[in-house]
Amino acid sequence: MKNYPHNDNIHHHHHHYSHLETGTVSGLNLVLTMLLNLIIAVAEVIGGLLSGSLSLVSDALHNLSDAAAVAISLAALRFSRRGATLEKTFGFQRLEILAALFNAAVLIVISILLFKESVIRLLHPQAINSSMMAGVGVVGLLANTLAVFLLRRDAGKSLNVRSSYLHLFSDALSSVAVVGGGIAIYFWHITWIDPILTILIGLYVLKESCEIVADTVQILMEGTPKGVELEEIYKSIKSLPGIRDLHHVHVWQLGERQINFEGHIDLEEDITISESEKLRRQVEVLLRDKFGIEHVMLQMEYEGCPGTGLVRKTYSQLI
């Protein structure tokens, strides 16, 4: 019977596959951001009605959607931290991903509506009170900028918060457009500059939102996480003494950071359970230290699944 090396003989390399930072998202910052957006929305509705500026009213609606987005983000964060239950054995971690997807989808819809409104304004310019428009726009810009700074750090920790951050960042840019448009209309009567800036801002927001949608869909579809190379994992595990093969592999993300791994390990010899346990621990250490995978479930076998590939084919692929 072979003596298999212990964990300390493995050379570990730390790889960072997630683009998200570690740390706890600040609930207080989310609450302050939500209140700021509600205040901005009320101010812009009043200013828009008094000045006749449709851009202020539409920006107010955007801020209301921001407040709703932040409220959803806050609720999702609170629920996602709850532990597992008998009914939900994985807990509520996926709720944050669903919130990010919903927020990004709303941003895409708003961007498309802004494109439509911009075209209408280009074709049919409207007379507005430019000084009031610029004044209210400055208030909105200051408040939105403060909100952006409140969430800037947390945007790197959560897709959910990142989607809310994008809402706020796009609003800050929109406020710049409103202020610039008001100044341009006041001095040079250039009414077309506001819808042009709105289209440019919308294109940026659309790009960022589509990236968030792609990331969340990949997680919800339980696709292989970004940066995780199955071939590299296969070679690393197979190179361990005593392991013949790795197959029936599944790698997915439960939430934004938790990567799960399961697979079957085919052993070279029919060894005892205690000896196979040593090998199993070696594989777990390897996956954790080299690939950043903390949650591992392995099935140890001896000639259990002959002729099986790294990823098991579905029934439809076999027939």
Rank of each mutant, 00 (worst) to 15 (best):
H248F: 11
R121E: 02
V148I: 10
R281I: 12
A134M: 06
T272I: 00
V148F: 11
D194N: 12
L206M: 15
L159H: 13
F115Q: 07
F187N: 06
D8F: 10
I243R: 11
A75N: 09
L28R: 15
G263S: 11
S130R: 05
V148E: 08
H16A: 00
D215Y: 13
T191A: 06
A143K: 00
L150M: 13
I271C: 06
H11C: 10
L122I: 08
A105G: 15
L168R: 12
S55F: 12
R121N: 01
V138A: 08
V285K: 08
L151C: 11
V249G: 11
G263F: 09
K2S: 13
F92M: 02
T33F: 08
I108Q: 13
A134W: 00
L240C: 02
Q218G: 11
A41Q: 05
N260A: 09
M34P: 01
W252Y: 07
A41R: 04
K235I: 09
E268R: 14
L240R: 04
E284H: 12
F187R: 08
L36S: 11
D66W: 03
F261M: 05
G137T: 00
A172S: 15
T224M: 03
G47V: 03
D289L: 11
I120Q: 14
L50R: 05
A155G: 06
V179I: 15
L38Q: 07
L77I: 04
A104I: 05
